[in-house]
Design a protein around this nucleic acid. Structure first.
Lengths: 295, 295
DNA sequence: TGGATTTATAGATAAAAGCTATAAATTTAC
DNA sequence: GTAAATTTATAGCTTTTATCTATAAATCCA
């Protein structure tokens, strides 16, 4: 049911006359007659009870009238929006985020807004590798801030900063008496780690393997925030990116760096190479790179 | 921009290939090529940067991709809804109301729901004569409950009940000492009456004219509720339908019948003769008639 | 009853959407 | 490095769809 036909139908319904509607639509009355007839045939129902003496929409006709009006309106809105973009560009781009970026991103967005005050930025939470790839591929996001390198020809993954992973202990935990800890200290502790598919999990488990330790995994989580809460509730020990501790508003848990095995995680900016990027998005990429080069 | 083309475009954007999209769409690749080209021409912008080596949506292309998906979805929803109605009827009808009907309508709707438990009823407030006519004419409402007779060939206006108008006085008003009042008692009182275009205003002013009195109009209102509030605040005297007093939840104002001039207002059910009425709507009409025949 | 008005039908024409064949550019395979 | 394969675009033809004019059939109105 093409938009043009829906519009024909709406005008007929409003004029309550094929002849008058045809005039307004600048087509002949027989054309309109057969257009409506074809609609009815392809929908396999009667829309208008019509004869020389009466004009009446059927039940289905009344529904289609209401809905077609909305659809036509929607269609017009899309065309208008397209015209606006043609004239002045989208002024909008979207970023997929891993949760830890919310620690420094607001600050960076303030800088961004100074340079691009009229640009709307959409922020979407995109946690796992699959989500990142899918969101980029479906044009949902222009950029992704992620800590997983994406091994794909079409996607560029540029490292922007590295941060240490630190161990996080509940309040009054005996290990917090030392300023540094060793991986082996954690062997007996109930351990909290990201669920399968997350880069941090792989990195942490690999480090434990290398020093010959099997951690006592008690909880698997998706978000570091969850891990942090569990630790605060004395349910175990975890390892989280240092920025979480640095920027955390209030945290009753205690972080300690790991001396023997410097665990790092890299945060990347990922985007599709072949895709159109709004100039604002390129500006954002530069800003992110500058922001972390200072360190 | 017809739905079919929007769909072509969406599939091309998702497949990132004309050849593959053409396969999925069961059309030839050249047809698809020229279809997209025609879209671009009619929108007067480039949607896809394409060659044998690259495929990239333009800024406008990305926007259209997002919006076209929504529009296609909307379109599918309309067709689905139409199919549902074809199978099992709308199960929905809408009534335009004058405010005073809210006094007895809830009770009646309870009866209605016993007979038609699955029917959704939409209630719209439609105050003035113009609004009633327009809402009926635009297929917004199936029925109108109104107190104004509609003089129009296409619209049937069936009287359903009559009610007295009673005078309404503030608390402790001296005239409330009598059980009945005369129109002439109201001559000096600050009077509140509906604004121009409302039937009740005409009826009241006509009555005053017939007994040779010019009322001292201080306020013109649209809703009896407003008038009632004004009276309660001691800002004047008004005349309202008796049902307002009968069914009112709490009312500090006092009503008195008028002895010398029995002012009546008739409430009508109005609907378009030539229009399709769902069986539920006919059921509702019968119910309304029965409801008031008892009196 | 006769002219005017309404929708439907018939048949012809114009516009569009689609097809096949093939060219041009580029990548992949050997 | 060259040949084969792949991708999009163009040309020309065919089919389908949309629209037109002319007119029939039903109904209304004077």
């Amino acid at each position: 049911m093409e938009i043009r036909y829906l519009n024909y139908f709406v005008v007929v319904a409003e004029k309550r006359s094929f002849t008058k509607a045809a005039e307004q639509l600048h087509i002949s009355q027989p054309s309109l007659s057969s257009a409506i007839k074809n609609m009815e045939k392809s929908l396999d129902l009667k829309l208008i009870e019509r004869s020389t003496k009466e004009f009446r929409l059927t039940e289905e006709g009344e529904l289609l009238y209401q809905e077609a009006k909305k659809l036509i309106r929607h269609h017009e809105n899309v065309l208008n929006e397209l015209e606006n973009v043609k004239k002045s560009g989208v002024g909008e781009f979207s970023i997929g985020l891993i949760e830890s970026s919310m620690l420094w991103l607001p600050d960076l967005l303030n800088q961004f807004k100074e340079n691009f005050p009229h640009v709307k930025v959409k922020l979407l939470e995109v946690l796992s590798l699959e989500e990142v790839e899918e969101a980029l591929w479906n044009y949902e996001i222009h950029l992704a801030i992620t800590n997983q390198f994406i091994h794909r020809e079409e996607i560029e993954t540029a490292p922007v900063y590295r941060e240490r992973l630190v161990a996080l202990f509940p309040p009054q935990h005996p290990l917090t008496e030392k300023p540094y800890i060793h991986l082996s200290d954690l062997a007996e502790e109930p351990f909290i780690v990201s669920r399968e598919g997350f880069q941090t999990r792989e990195d942490i488990l690999k480090a434990f393997r290398e020093v010959g330790i099997v951690p006592n995994i008690q909880f698997e989580i998706e978000r570091f925030e969850t891990a942090t809460r569990l630790v605060e509730e004395n349910l175990g020990v975890t390892m989280i990116p240092e920025n979480y501790v640095k920027y955390a508003k209030s945290l009753s848990a205690n972080a300690r760096p790991i001396q023997d095995f410097p665990l790092l995680r890299t945060v990347y900016l990922a985007f599709e190479k072949n895709r159109y990027l709004p100039p604002t998005a390129s500006g954002f990429i530069d800003l992110v790179k500058n922001y972390f080069e200072k360190d």
